[in-house]
Nucleic acid binder design. Structure first.
Lengths: 343, 343
DNA sequence: ATTAAAAATTTACGCGCGTCAAGAATATCG
DNA sequence: CGATATTCTTGACGCGCGTAAATTTTTAAT
């Protein structure tokens, strides 16, 4: 630190007593040099805080140490949570995650992928919009870079996909609700953009039929990402007009449920499974705030940790062997029933 | 598009009929070339989707078009919301925002600044931890790059600071609460990391004294970012033991309030200002979920938009004239009282 | 048309590092 | 100890672009 500043790898190689090409090799992969020389370099590193110029590094390098992470909307706590875990996993692996949010705008997803192109990422983790994604753009990107999808699936796109088994999770919830009270109706967005919503719809119908019950679907008008507001307004209308044929409502996701809980409270309808309660409301996702709703929300916890870790791990395995997967991997993790007070 | 791919600026200059140095100039600043040549370049751009290599671009360039945006914790909806706005404002201005979260870990803030150094950012927008920030590291960074702080202030650090006037906003809330019912006590974290918390504490005391009332402070044990949980546990304990000397509680921030609302619900205490209500609870920040709590939370809305825009604008003004501000700018925006049902 | 100013071109160099080939040094093993 | 396999050094080239100086072309103004 006391020495005059090191300007480039040439100078750093000089003070560390190692040739520049070897130093270059070290920075690419510290394990690729002999332990004795690694020690010399690392000793020098502690004395002369030198760090290679990332721009010069990446210029000639085919693949950088950058990992793109693209989520549809960071303002949604679900994505900030799972994005957070993915980010940390990348850092642990010695990569530089670049977190990009599409701010709820599908077109921006393509923009983000386009921006990533110029950063020559070693790989990309994408939680796509799904139906609203530009499938051609994503598939084109998939051809040029190692791409792993998570949260939302897109057929024949990406080298792998990791998400929650909505059929298992919804069935788990339907089973619980049927066993413990009236069979649930289903509350969802009318035109959801996320493919999970469609799967959950289908899963609900199938599960209800398997239980010998008649499915009842209620759909909320509205576009965009304001799920709580939509749940509150549309759910409130349905509650006020007594439209539900049952006193148990399964919401397609927690954010809708949070809105509906708010509406129920305003209508003085006591939500829960205890005596004196008017209706039960359940959600899906174990949203970070679902523990603090009134009453606390019964929901399905997605295995964030497993999804994030497996997606990252799979990507890194591809990077190691430096080839595409022989066959598209697809793994669904089970949801876990979280019983709280609302249902 | 039909032509063979352009490999570099040399080839692109050839097909556009302009010399490479001029093309280079164009990409630095499209307005720096004659309109007629700009048209030629842009015409060529539409035919041969060429984009300059960012790494080669930034290698020799002193300042890049990168803007660093560092927030303490993206998992907090407050920061994901304000980070979102800052990001979009940067994109509008033709810069590339790089959003970094410190994941609630103060040491990671310094790491993030260190990472940013190697990206040679044109400027950085930082929402610091405050007391827990490594002040020396931040100030050192301030000397090397244009730095603007927002949300949390640090004395003599950064070229400018933009945030909310906690004294104004807390006074507004205290005034309202006193006028409409019992004077509030104050509920906060015992050892808050955020400087805003200290200001709010002080603002509460001063405001109460100005109103001729005796301030009462209640502090919650607990560390970390689990404010809702802390609010629920500690707030619940205080409510259950009837420790509050008043039936109006002003929480230092919405997340604590959300936790306390949850505890109150569990205790069957009706919150609100109407008849039959046991207590009033108010918050601060207009957290995205405060509209959907039960009851909806009365709070102070921070002017996210203004804070984000002014911070970004101030930074860009510095970049334009390419010099530090003659004097450290500091501007506080007023909070807005949002009256809902909880108080 | 003349002239000065502005902009574009030509030529050339350098940035910091990746990477390759050939040879020298070192390590590993029987 | 010698033979072979690793690893390192030396020297050199190139990546794609920024940028500077000198020259030529274009534009604007008289």
């Amino acid at each position: 630190m006391v020495q005059p500043k090191i300007r480039n790898m040439e100078e750093f190689a000089a003070v560390s007593g190692i040739s520049r090409p070897t130093v270059s090799k070290y920075f690419n992969d510290p394990d690729s040099v002999r332990p004795s020389t690694r020690q010399k370099i690392e000793a020098a590193l502690e004395q002369h805080d030198y760090r290679p110029n990332v721009f010069a590094m990446n210029q000639n390098r085919r693949k950088t140490k950058n990992i793109g992470v693209v989520v549809p909307n960071l303002a949604d706590p679900f994505f900030s949570e799972i994005g957070r875990r993915v980010e940390l996993a990348c850092i642990d692996a010695g990569y530089s995650p670049i977190l990009l949010s599409s701010h709820g705008i599908p077109e921006m997803e393509s923009d983000n992928l386009e921006s990533l192109r110029s950063l020559k990422p070693a790989g990309v983790l994408l939680a796509p919009f799904g139906r609203l994604s530009d499938k051609d753009a994503v598939q084109a990107f998939d051809r040029d870079f190692p791409l792993v999808l998570f949260d939302a699936n897109m057929s024949d796109t990406g080298q792998a996909y990791f998400g929650t088994d909505n059929f298992q999770s919804i069935d788990l919830m339907v089973e619980y609700l049927c066993r413990s009270g009236e069979p649930p109706c289903f509350f969802e967005m009318k035109s959801p953009s996320n493919p999970n919503a469609n799967k959950r719809h289908q899963a609900y119908v199938e599960s209800m039929e398997r239980h010998g019950q008649t499915p009842h679907i209620f759909q909320a008008e509205g576009e965009g990402w304001n799920f709580e507001e939509i749940g509150k307004v549309e759910g409130g209308r349905l509650l006020a007009s007594n439209a539900f044929k049952t006193r148990t409502v399964l919401c397609s996701n927690d954010r809708l449920a949070i809105g509906m809980l708010s509406a129920a409270y305003a209508l003085d309808l006591r939500v829960g499974h205890g005596p004196g309660c008017h209706l039960r409301i359940a959600g899906h996702d174990d949203h970070p705030f679902s523990r603090f709703t009134c009453p606390a929300l019964t929901t399905i916890a997605q295995d964030y940790e497993a999804i994030a870790n497996r997606a990252v791990r799979t990507l890194f395995e591809m990077l190691q062997v430096d080839e595409r997967l022989p066959t598209r991997a697809e793994m669904l993790f089970e949801g876990r029933l979280v019983m709280r007070d609302s249902a």
